[in-house]
Nucleic acid binder design. Structure first.
Lengths: 340, 340
DNA sequence: TTCGAAAAGGAAACCGGTGTCAAAACTTTT
DNA sequence: AAAAGTTTTGACACCGGTTTCCTTTTCGAA
């Protein structure tokens, strides 16, 4: 039994099956040039010994490993977890595993830290989540290190290679259309922080849609937040201090929309009767607050799955940037305004 | 330049430094028996070539890798992310990396899936999050496979080895004490699902504390949920259908407490004036709903860090189960009842 | 039956590190 | 100056796979 502590190796299998280790390797790798009875003999030995190939040895011999990294600095827990689930969807039943690596956007050493990480781990490739995915220097670093990468984003980034994206500009436009259809004309925007591509896209999508409807967007109807609940509170306070008040607010993510709801309630305004609210992401908080919030569903899990597949098998997944569509989820935070 | 595509190896360093590869290995591993000038020569070569050891080769030679797995099936995104951050706190500046693996508690194949995963990846060890950490068969599986593991939990589990825990029974007791101090006597409990150790601990902690105060816990004052927002709604509906109604509800996690808040509002009850609410976890939702919710802060990030350290270096971290303390975070969801 | 080509399988080197153990290079002692 | 002891270094095998290249086997055609 002392020996049984050791995991069986390919040599053990070869000995038991009475073949060379190369033949065992052929069986494992599904080589087609094998006689059926040889294959069966080897497979029987594999079962008997409960042999599982050593991934580290494989990685060494193949000069590549089976680890996918996830680089993220997203403030939203649910988004990050959805991405993790999406990647898992893609690598289920493969040999790949997912290595996570939160990064600190505000650290001056961020790129150096990531460089160390990539050099040390020699990952097969990395998936990069927004907002850090919008950092072109990071993509350049990956190229320099020869590390595969796929970026997830809210719009076309640089040449659009290695990219899986949604079209937030369009999606926000549809949200604005909806508010206008419900009779709203004075609509406030809580946008994301300067420097986030998603913030830019959502803001420009908002402005473009308003313009299309012939509506004005005065400066006091735009307030910037940082994608957190607290920043949503501050931004909503500024918006609701304007006169006349907006009848509706679009927030660039659900957390900030929840913050706006918080302020409205504190100020004694009823939602949606006194103030309509639309968020973005369809994260759980949108459904869990009261009233349940109308929001834009951002198909982040499917995007993550597609991104992982593109990383693992770029040819099969298609080299073109994949675009995903967002849609509006109507719940109860928007009221129809009559006589506007 | 063709050659430069290849990462430099230990052999390249040895050649440049004019020493044997073993000597380079000694430098990398900080062996003390090296002459200073040899060390410097090698370090210069390492810098010159920008050499970084290949982790796969190291893993093969050492017969162990530097990957820590995280097994989780926690319904709460923030909890999972906090744990990931905690683990990162522990492995920062080490060679370790974190591999995540969500599991499906409801799948009959869960254990087989995990077995495949562990056999395939040969991780250094795994951290197991509640609720799946409460599964003794999983711990047995790890032992069988010779895979290191540390469980995180809400109380003493089995022999208490490989365990980092909080004491939820106590923590809930303090929450009940607080409600009683505020004058509440008819207090409802939304407990977690049968089979979760944390649910059991929190329920028993509740009952024990009530008994200590000489208060009754009739059956209609206990409703079971499944730690989700929706289940919190259903449970709160049952509790509020009782007559007389409870003046306060303690929920075993914040999500369910948020569900209860949702129901209260729908029923036209004011929180906290008509109904006081206390949650558990101190997840972001607790601070983000209105009114901000009083809850028990569960120090999950610190627990995760401790668990990872115990996994990496059991001797230094201490073999004893580490216990962490939870404390009550007073916010605005509890009102004082006069004349009770 | 013999020959040749194709198919199947094996020996040995290799991937890039670490462990063992002995040799080499210094010190110190006599 | 030689012997002995100590420190430092290197040669070589090994971890468990894959790759290269060559040999053996099989099988159809001559």
């Amino acid at each position: 039994m002392a020996k049984s502590e050791r995991q069986p190796t390919i040599n053990d299998v070869a000995r038991v099956a009475g073949v060379s280790k190369k033949t065992v390797s052929r069986v494992i790798n599904r080589s087609p040039l094998l006689k059926a009875d040889t294959r069966e003999k080897v497979e029987a030995a594999i079962r008997e010994l409960a042999y599982v190939p050593n991934p580290q040895a494989r990685a060494l011999a193949l000069r590549r490993n089976f680890l996918i990294g996830l680089l993220h600095d997203n403030p939203n827990a649910q988004t990050v977890l959805n991405v993790q689930e999406g990647v898992l969807d893609a690598i289920r039943d493969t040999d790949f595993a997912l290595v996570v690596r939160p990064v600190d956007r505000h650290s001056p050493r961020m790129l150096d830290d990531i460089r160390d990480f990539l050099e040390k781990q020699r990952l097969f490739g990395v998936l990069i989540l927004p907002p850090v995915s919008e950092n072109d220097a990071l993509a350049a670093l990956c190229r320099e290190l020869g590390c595969g990468y796929v970026r997830m984003g809210s719009a076309q980034l640089d040449q659009g290679e290695n990219l899986v994206m949604s079209n937030d500009r369009d999606a926000v436009g549809r949200a604005v259309d909806y508010l206008v259809e419900q009779g709203h004309q004075r609509i406030g925007l809580i946008c994301g922080p300067d420097g986030f591509r998603s913030a830019l896209e959502r803001r420009e999508g908002f402005k473009a849609a308003m313009k299309r409807h012939g509506l004005d967007v005065p400066a006091e109807m735009i307030a910037e937040g940082s994608y957190t609940f607290e920043s949503g509170i501050a931004a909503a306070e500024r918006l609701l201090a304007a006169s006349p008040r907006p009848t509706a607010i679009f927030a660039s993510n659900d957390e900030m929309a929840a913050g706006a709801l918080h302020v409205a309630r504190r100020e004694g305004m009823a939602v949606p009767d006194d103030l309509s609210l639309v968020g973005f992401d369809d994260s759980p908080i949108a459904a869990h607050i009261w009233p349940p919030m109308t929001t834009v569903r951002w198909p982040i899990r499917a995007m993550a799955k597609a991104a992982a597949m593109k990383l693992i098998d770029p040819l099969e997944a298609g080299a073109q940037p994949s675009q995903f569509l967002s849609d509006l989820v109507e719940r109860s935070s928007v009221a129809r305004i009559e006589g506007a």
